[in-house]
């Protein structure tokens, strides 16, 4: 699979990763090599089995438990104000 710098840029934007030109230059051939490895998938024969995800059915009962204290809630950030988390702008 041919990987271009445009593809890498588009993927990076989707994943909210900023890459320098130097990084892009480095990533393009690596990306292509990795996708080369992954493309081997196409030649693996399928024997008809479906994907399966485990079934356990171990669900939770609907009972309340104590939540975190305000101190704990904000213990890992400086960005809070009046009981709210502070985040970047939307508009």
């Amino acid at each position: 699979m041919k990987i271009t710098s445009e593809i890498v840029k588009k993927v990076a934007d989707t994943a909210r990763i900023t890459l320098s030109d130097k990084e892009i230059e480095k990533f393009v051939p690596q990306f292509e090599e990795i996708m080369g490895l992954f493309s081997q998938l196409a030649s693996i024969k399928e024997t008809g089995s479906e994907y399966s995800i485990k079934t356990i059915n171990q669900l939770r009962t609907d009972t309340e438990e104590e939540c975190l204290s305000q101190e704990e809630v904000f213990s890992n950030t400086k960005n809070h104000e009046m009981g709210f988390f502070k985040g970047p702008k939307i508009k």
């Binding site: 593809i7 994943a15 990763i17 990533f27 990306f31």
Partner: peptide, 12 residues
């Protein structure tokens, strides 16, 4: 970064 990018790509 590499795994985030490749991982994002293959589920697009």
């Amino acid at each position: 970064k590499r795994r985030i990018l490749v991982g994002t790509f293959i589920r697009m």
